[in-house]
């Protein structure tokens, strides 16, 4: 399955705004926003770790990358155009949903998607709230969650990304900010 970035649709909204370039200093902000959201809303303390592919600076995002498990996406439009994503295994998603909604509720796949989508939404919102130049000039979309195996994300425009990797009870979770350049 291939998912094409939906951020193009938001381009018209932000056409009159001057876009901000991706700032590598935002990586620590994204990490901080992520840790806060998971601790406050999922009652879990994540451990930052080094991503499999070390990315100390913004790099062009891989045009097409095969993924598996579960990925939640929230679109951003305005002075920053792109998406925030959370990617984890299905098992990790279920355990996170259990923390948020209870073990019984997390047996429902819809609840699991809902939980990860909300986490992604809050990470994106918390991230932009921490950056003054974004707070009032960047809108968020509702979240989209994709589950399955062997799918790919493909952006229609050149893009850059910041990656944050964390561990939840030894299981990796990757948070990405992918912006159109």
């Amino acid at each position: 399955m291939t998912i094409t970035s939906a951020t193009t649709a938001a381009t018209d909204v932000s056409a009159e705004l001057k876009r901000l370039p991706l700032d590598t200093a935002w990586k620590s902000v994204l990490e901080c926003a992520t840790l806060e959201v998971f601790e406050m809303m999922a009652a879990t303390r994540l451990t930052p770790c080094i991503p499999p592919e070390l990315t100390p600076h913004a790099q062009p995002a891989t045009p097409t990358k095969t993924q598996s498990g579960l990925i939640a996406m929230v679109g951003m439009a305005g002075v920053l155009c792109g998406i925030t994503t959370i990617h984890c295994s299905s098992d990790t998603a279920i355990r996170l949903a259990s923390k948020m909604a209870g073990t019984e509720a997390a047996k429902d796949p819809n609840i699991v998607s809902d939980a990860i989508g909300e986490l992604c939404n809050m990470v994106a919102g918390n991230f932009k709230a921490k950056i003054t130049s974004l707070a009032d000039h960047c809108m968020l979309s509702v979240s989209t969650v994709i589950t399955g195996e062997n799918y790919a994300l493909q952006s229609a425009e050149p893009s850059e990304s910041l990656q944050v990797a964390v561990l939840f009870e030894s299981s990796p979770i990757q948070i990405s900010l992918i912006t159109q350049s």
Binding site: A124, G125, A129, D136, L140
Partner: peptide, 8 residues
């Protein structure tokens, strides 16, 4: 209740 930090 809002996710966004938008003052507006």
């Amino acid at each position: 209740i809002t996710t966004e930090g938008s003052e507006a």
